[in-house]
Design a protein around this nucleic acid. Structure first.
Lengths: 343, 343
DNA sequence: GCACGGCGTGGGAGCGCTCCCAACGGCGAC
DNA sequence: GTCGCCGTTGGGAGCGCTCCCACGCCGTGC
């Protein structure tokens, strides 16, 4: 039951001054007490805490921020134009992990979206406008102007995914897409599949490119252009790409899709064409998303360590913020093959 | 190209004072100019704008917030313990719509999660601690303490979904779950299905309860307890509930599932039991989520006007913030039947 | 015995903005 | 011609906090 004690502030809320008066110490001492308690005697600490409890005091974030020049919050920026990540369960996962990890470090998470050109512009203003101390970015497409501006502003930033063209200048955490793609395609080959087709993701994204490169490395000399089709991660595009593949008349006994959702579309198309999965065509996905177990047959796919990468990103950002890390840091995390029924 | 002009502030960033000096007016006039321009001559406005552009000035949010007592930002709170909304595409949709609508009104969106008891407690502190001017809440379970605390704090709040037990004291925006359930169950009946089973959502959630009530109203006297099973929205629970229904030995020719995801699980279970959909059992879902078109056959379901409800919530919150609205406001939005192949 | 360093503390000086009041001038009304 | 009003402007007074310097005090080393 706070606030039945005399309080001076016109806002009605108790201030640090009220706490100081009640505890019988100075404003400076209370400030030190609520900021870690360095150079404060334990007895005084306790007394201050008691006063805080009695008054129901909580610091005014605006005042703290104005005086200290820090905000205590970090932005999570979704510079995703379309659906991939945004409509993905991973988005929620990221938010949850970030929020938890940052809270543990005494910071707040602030989520913003930047969809169009305007929003991206606005975003630059916002991020460099003193609203946040740092930022976590997802950027499937290379977004030169924003990245360049952020780099120039000196704002601590960690990118989720590999920022094509900015690998050197920024810190980032990514999945070893290429290695994972290699592993799953190699698995298909080991199962005796000799002609392996693929549906790639957008090749202007890092993941799209890398997964495709992993595929190419494994098929090596057996690479054939007519076994490759392109999608945009969506189930719809997976279906269309498969139909295109089939329409070419080339046959294949395995199909590596760069996303689970495309694999779902692919399975539907194969089934319509009278082909059995995995008997006629083994299908492999990527992501181990909820879609993976929702289709029949359940997808053999690759599990991406989203949680770990989120935690790693926060760790790096924290280092950047407290200047423990001064050079851009880059981390590549391994993923894991998940074998189910589709291949 | 900002900041090649002499700047006084020790932070390096130009302040309102620098702008005033360059524009040849006073601090007060610049403040008025950047806050709508009331009582400022057009010529002066232009001069101030020019100075702002030259210096690359942007307001310091902390200083503004400290002086004005407002923050300009609104929290979107996910007090969702588990997966339903969080792993849902709707979540992303909400974030996007909120972010867009608030930006349009000159505010920022701040997303926070509150999963455990601790976080909920923390959340109360946070929301009432002066970090935000108002909040948008999702709360599938009735969370008495948080709601009570928010109500008592006087913070403007709009709830997405019906806050059971707090319908009178808070503003909220919800879907007409009951009406929508009625409509789709009536549709099943109109298709000649005589024994309609249902898989409900959690009955301690408003939607779970209302959808069940809609079902009951339509089946009326033909209600049979053994045609009802319960789930938790997940596809897994839909599968389990269906197996349970089948195990009872009672037959049914239609199944209304309170979520698409449960319908997906139900279809898998029915298929395993050798029952055809929709021939033997017509299946209806709810939500019109991405899952709806991902299964075979595509789900007949109910489309929920998420976007509209998000926009409506912002509209109400805005009214609460600028005191245009003083009484709690309640809005119930209608949904729309979407007929596909499963029923 | 005395100088010195460091811990613990008090309080002045801002941080950059908004709010408000006083002052100024021009204009229509009487 | 004078009065009063309103639109416009300047600038003082904070908003509630952190930062930093100065001051006392105690313990240590010689």
């Amino acid at each position: 039951m706070p606030a039945h004690h005399p309080v001076s502030s016109p806002s009605g809320r108790p201030t640090i001054e009220d706490v100081a008066r009640l505890a019988g110490v100075s404003r400076g001492t209370v400030s030190r007490a609520i900021n870690g308690g360095r150079h404060v005697r334990p007895a005084v600490m306790a007394e201050v805490q008691r006063a805080i409890d009695i008054l129901g005091y909580s610091v005014n974030p605006a005042a703290r921020s104005l005086a200290s020049g820090r905000t205590g919050s970090v932005a999570f920026v979704l510079s995703e134009r379309q659906e991939h990540l945004f409509e993905d369960p991973n988005f929620g996962l990221f938010v949850r992990v970030f929020s938890r990890e940052l809270r543990r470090r005494g910071r707040h998470l602030l989520v913003t979206a930047a969809e169009g050109k305007d929003e991206e512009l606005f975003l630059g203003d916002y991020l460099t406008g003193g609203h946040v101390d740092g930022a976590l970015l997802t950027l499937p497409h290379a977004r030169e102007p924003l990245l360049e501006r952020l780099r120039a502003s000196g704002l601590p930033v960690v990118v989720l995914g590999e920022p094509l063209g900015h690998q050197e200048a920024l810190s980032w955490v990514a999945i070893d897409d290429e290695g994972a793609a290699e592993e799953i395609v190699r698995y298909l080959a080991a199962k005796g599949r000799s002609s392996i087709a693929t549906i790639t993701g957008p090749l202007n994204t890092s993941s799209g490119r890398r997964r495709y490169e992993g595929y190419r490395r494994v098929v090596g000399r057996r690479y054939r252009k007519d076994l490759v089709a392109h999608g945009d991660w969506s189930s719809h595009s997976g279906r269309a790409a498969t139909e295109q593949l089939l329409a070419r008349g080339t046959t294949f006994d395995a199909l590596f899709c760069a996303s689970d959702r495309m694999a779902v579309g692919a399975i539907a198309a194969l089934r319509e064409a009278g082909l059995g999965v995995p008997d006629d065509v083994a299908v492999a996905g990527f992501d181990d998303s909820v879609a993976a177990t929702m289709v029949e047959p359940a997808l053999t796919t690759v599990r991406i360590p989203f949680e770990e990468s989120a935690m790693e990103a926060v760790r790096i950002l924290e280092g950047l913020l407290d200047k423990t890390i001064t050079e851009p840091r880059r981390v590549l995390l391994p993923s894991k093959l998940v074998v189910r029924d589709s291949a």
